[in-house]
Amino acid sequence: MTGSPTLASLFWTQLRIELRLFFRSPLQAFFSLIFPLLMLLVFATLFGNGRMGLLGVTAAQFYAPALAVYGAVSTAYWNLAISVVTARELGVLKRIRGTPLPPSVYMAARLAASTWIAFLAIAIMIGAGVVMYGVTVYAHTLAAAAVTFVVGVGCFAALGLVIASISPNAKTTPALTSATLLPLSFISEVFIPPSASAPAWLGQFADLFPLKHFARAFSGAFNPSLHGSGFAWSDAGGTYAIGPHVAVMAAWGTVAVVVAVRRFSWEPRPEKSR
């Protein structure tokens, strides 16, 4: 080889390494790809093919996209945070800092790997829903679903890096991610469909966080009672509108990127004198 490797080839090298490592770590692959699928089986069995609450769709038609969002978020947020903190604690990040691999390329490759795995999680979930429970996919909303996916995964990956930045060690990280993701999943139309009996303040509280917006915008693409392509700002009159949801996720994501860039550390804290 002559001359320095191009940034593109460095990115590609790192992306392949990250994906290889992911699939060699059975626990990570299980929680991102298989666990949400098991939840779909449980929910679809529990609720049968009856109509779900306010939505008027079958259990699988609600849960397949909702749990697909859960799978994507657990990959982008949960896995990314834990694997970055673990890599930092093992000294992997420090070793990388000593090589010519630019930190920005390393981070870009990690984000790309997370995005790809999140995409797999969603594809597996929707695919299983279609094959096993007759979930319907609508061609005219696919573009909006794709945009929602990209912004949502970006937002949660950035939040995952914030957790990685503030988490003192690998033991604390799963607690931080679980304590934030799990309660929100119950009030954000991920584990439980919207219901008329839920107090309004709870819905308003969940509206503050990005998870409900991700779930709503993505699930809307699978809701036959909504109309339109999804590229709209107002959901008045049963229109499928991802605009407000994408805006909230983009805002969270932007703040998260700023915080993560400021606080991120490549070495285990605290910097010791030796």
């Binding site: 390494i17 290889r20 490592l21 093992l90 000294g91």
Partner: peptide, 12 residues
Amino acid sequence: IVLQDGGLEEDL
């Protein structure tokens, strides 16, 4: 750089 304390991905 040959580091003193690891930093190797164990699954490679």
